[in-house]
Amino acid sequence: MIVFDNKKVKQWMNKDFSHLTGFGLCIFLLPLLGKWIPMLANYMDVMVYVGIYSIITMALCLLTGYAGQISLGHASFFGIGAYVSGVMTTRYGVNPWPCLMLGVAASATVALLIGGPSLKLKGHYLAMATMAFCIIITIIFNETATYTGGPDGLAFIPGISIMGHAVDSEVKYYYLVWSVVFLVLLFCLNIIRSRVGRALRSIHGSELAASAIGVNVARYKIYVFVFSAVLTSVAGSLYAHYLNFINPASFDLLVSIKFLIMIILGGMHSLWGAIFGAALVTLLSYEWLQYFEEAEVMVYGVIVLVIVIFLPHGLVSIPKRLKSIRAR
């Protein structure tokens, strides 16, 4: 299927390497620049959320962009991570780190259970099954109020600390979250370049063809589904400990749809696109569109439409589009 040209691989590696260094430098320098440019310092808070959502969109990029499986259920894994962390730390006083691992285990188990039968479904049916799952989980969060606090939410979730150092400021949390983003990015880039990544792309192309060339389609689909659920759960735990508060509305179907919008706007076939998409949607809805006050929803709708119409491959395709326009 793909012929390996050594030179081409090297080019890829170089491109990735330079992008990664540039990206790492950017995220490292941003808070430092905040000392001179106070506006940037104001963005620390929102950038933490951009980071948290980036982890999820990268996971979804593998699942949807590479393996071609649509999930409307990832808000639930986000929620399971957050609620396991929140409930265990507030009600039972467990240290946040084991809670995070527990959340991962819970999400992985749920993902296995729901993914097994769901991933046999194709196209819209998969979207519908995961949608049903998502709504059910939201109702469970609402109805088990003795543990979760119900619709009013769970407040006073403790912060996180690393080896005795409390991660208590926005900048500290920024570095924590973005280090995770960086690690996830490295890991995902490696997956994509590996056998697994090629197998996933072949599934996206045609499941029949993929299984004909010996790819175990069912198994790979479950793998990537569980993997994405695990990453999303980690993001959920980080979210709970940063906001110190969670409620079911933060993990409902609309949030799943928001994740989908993020990857589409960013460009779902690229991990960089996933990060751009998360950044764009988060900054738009938490910062930039505030000036439109009550017209915000309308403006947001228009922006989504414009990007889908004119940049069907998302923000990452801008350089390519510019090049093709210049070439004309």
Binding site: A295, V299, Y300, G301, V302, L305
Partner: peptide
């Protein structure tokens, strides 16, 4: 929302309708 999409895929059409639904909802609120 639908016809102007270049190279429409199912997913891009779905997202376009979601964007449009935001707009319609916002306009109705107005």
């Amino acid at each position: 929302a639908i016809r102007p999409i270049r190279k429409p895929t199912v997913l891009s059409m779905v997202i376009a309708t979601i964007g449009a639904s935001f707009f319609i909802r916002g306009a109705a609120m107005f």
